[in-house]
Design a protein around this nucleic acid. Structure first.
Length: 608
DNA sequence: TCCCCTTTGAAGACA
DNA sequence: TGTCTTCAAAGGGGA
């Protein structure tokens, strides 16, 4: 657990009160989180053929990622933003993440965090919890759990920061994020010697991220010459290349994340060019970070280094250097790329950066939650992790999903603004075609043979996958609220369709449901997008006893009256067959949508 | 070393 | 317009 002042520093004060909180919270967190995680984990683990996966708790503890390498922290920070965003929007709905150390730049008036009555203002609490890892306490304990402490307790848990400590804290952050003319690559913060700073990701990269001699932009729009210290107009090459803009786009970009913009009048600290950079601003965005994006996408945006890296050397998530990600040479570069490429024309076309697709809602969710799932389980295979994530995704309420849809929409918007000429087609052919693309419609027998790592093995045949999606979540009882529809252009179809579904079965986008029989096991039953043949469906039907639930059509198939989608019996959670146990009910409370009480009471028997 | 696997969603291609 | 394909992330595992 990173601690700020464990090494004796007293800059922030109250350090002696901060230390144990995380441990306390971690225990609570473990208990609650493991409820769901273990379920998913057990589910997946039990389905894994690899028996070696079964490990003792001690092994699990050992395998749980501890402090990650810096590069991972870099990504973790990225995830943390999304996490924090969600938590902020959810009011602490989600538990504190496993990865501490999260740099937030915008401080909602930390110097005056107290309300008139002397209590800590909610914003300050939110900030302290979310933005300042040292002060972070498990969100579940503080804001979600019905047993959560009283506000007074919260204040206590928030370390009794007095006004001076907070002021010092804010100053600390300012000094940290906006070093002024630091002479060298030294970390421009007061960093205690013995502990990892909670902002370790930043510090870790600070040698690279914090360009010496770049003053805070909130202090001056100009750049101080690193040599002379004289303010001067920033040279394009020194400016943030994060989202390189085409010349025409420079300065014309409306804030793509204005929905996250904080209230006016709230002072924010913009990021200096060359200062702290989040790899993916849109992901990093939250209300406290929006001005960061504002500054990041300021007219200072210029072309990035040709290799697709930041001047800090950190690759932009959306720009992958050919050295990192192989791609064919210039042949596949679309004309738009040629015209709009942020990279100056080079003789070697293949060195053009690979602009990745913007992440969709699920990808954003996956990035955010993957670390949690991985931390909670011993599973290493992403395929299994993704299955869990996929189920959890479905288990999310529409409101929660809507956040990601909205975030993804902003991502796309931002991406389109930054890369006006970019097209998804530009990336076509840069990956080797998958085998399944050439695979003929597999017969049921073929499916079982096709791959020993097929998801059939991830999903248990006996033990119900008690993941929320297949058992609880929107698969059967999604509220079909239009929130997601409002948030995502893709969502409307689903919402529209699901509203017509008696059971509100959350279905894949209709383009994927090529057949009238749809297995809730999804691709686990062979219904891959590209191999969505009748055979795969029949494979599912043949391999899983199913019950048929009449559902409405969806999307483009809305004209089709009613479809009957067999649900593999093995996909039914016991809770669907019987009331949830007290333990389960506790889990329901702890995990919100992941464990909602089941309105359905399906009684069926496997047709062995 | 490269590809597969797995998930969902977005976007492009194609009929 | 509807259907299909590709790619986005992630990392263990297999060839």
């Amino acid at each position: 657990m990173p601690q700020l002042n464990g090494g004796g520093g007293d800059d922030l004060g109250a350090n002696d009160e901060m230390i144990s909180f995380k441990d306390e919270g971690e225990q609570e967190e473990k208990i609650s989180e493991n409820v769901s995680a273990e379920r998913d984990l057990d589910d997946v683990k039990s389905s894994l053929v690899n028996e070696s996966e079964s490990s003792s708790d001690s092994e699990q503890a050992e395998r749980r990622p501890q402090t990650r390498p810096d590069l991972e922290s870099y990504e973790k920070a990225r995830d943390y933003f999304s996490e924090a965003l969600r938590r902020q929007q959810d009011g602490g709905f989600f538990k504190s993440p496993h990865y501490p150390g999260y740099p937030f730049l915008m401080i909602p008036d930390l110097t005056n965090p107290y309300l008139s009555n002397g209590s800590l203002s909610p914003s300050a609490r939110t900030y302290l919890q979310m933005k300042w890892p040292l002060l972070d306490v498990p969100g579940s304990a503080g804001l979600k759990d019905s047993r959560s402490p009283t506000p007074g307790h919260l204040v206590t848990r928030y370390c009794h920061l007095d006004i001076f400590s907070l002021h010092r804290l804010s100053n600390f952050l300012l000094c940290f994020f906006f070093p002024l003319n630091l002479p060298s690559n030294k970390v421009p913060v007061v960093q205690h010697a013995h502990h990892v700073h909670p902002l370790t990701p930043l510090i870790t990269y600070s040698n690279e991220h914090f360009s010496p001699g770049t003053p805070p932009s909130h202090l001056s729009p100009e750049i101080l010459d690193p040599k002379t210290g004289i303010p001067r107009t920033p040279h394009p090459s020194e400016l943030s290349p994060y989202y390189p803009l085409s010349p025409g786009a420079v300065g014309s970009i409306a804030h793509p994340l204005g929905w996250l913009m904080p209230q006016q009048g709230q002072h924010m600290y913009s990021i200096p060019p060359g200062g702290f950079r989040h790899p993916y601003p849109a992901l990093a965005m939250n209300a406290s970070m929006s001005s960061l994006v504002s500054s990041r996408f300021s007219p200072h945006m210029v072309t990035p280094p040709p290799h697709g890296l930041h001047q800090t050397g950190i690759p932009h998530p959306a720009i992958v250097s050919p050295a990192i990600k192989q791609e064919p040479s210039g042949d596949n570069i679309s004309p738009s790329m040629h015209a709009k490429s942020p990279v100056p024309p080079k003789k070697e076309e293949d060195k053009r950066p690979h602009i990745k697709k913007p992440l969709n809602a699920f990808m954003l969710y996956m990035k955010e939650m993957r670390a949690k799932v991985v931390a909670e389980c011993t599973l290493k295979e992403s395929a299994a992790i993704n299955q869990i994530l996929g189920r959890r995704w479905h288990s999310l309420s529409r409101e929660e999903q809507a956040k990601y849809y909205e975030l993804a929409r902003k991502e796309r918007q931002l991406h389109s603004q930054l890369y006006p000429g970019w097209s998804a087609r530009d990336n076509y052919g840069k990956r080797k075609k998958r085998k399944r693309d050439n695979k003929p419609d597999s017969k049921p027998e073929d499916f079982s043979i096709r791959s020993k790592k097929q998801c059939v093995q991830y999903l248990p045949s006996e033990k119900m996958c008690d993941s929320p999606a297949s058992s609880h979540g929107s698969m059967l009882d999604s509220p079909a609220t239009p929130s997601a529809a409002l948030a995502s252009p893709a969502a409307p179809a689903a919402t529209h369709s699901e509203q017509a579904q008696p059971l509100s079965l959350t279905t894949k986008p209709e383009g994927r449901m090529h057949h009238h029989h749809f297995s809730l096991a999804g691709k686990a039953s062979g219904s891959t997008s590209s191999s969505s043949s009748s055979s795969s469906s029949s494979s599912s039907s043949s391999s899983h006893p199913t019950i048929s639930i009449p559902i409405g059509t969806s999307g483009s198939q809305s004209t089709t009256p009613i479809l009957t989608r067999p649900i593999p019996f093995t996909s039914l959670h016991p809770s669907m067959l019987s009331p949830p146990s007290p333990f389960h009910q506790a889990a329901l409370h702890s995990h919100h949508a992941l464990f909602q009480s089941q309105p359905l009471s399906l009684v069926t028997k496997p047709t062995e």
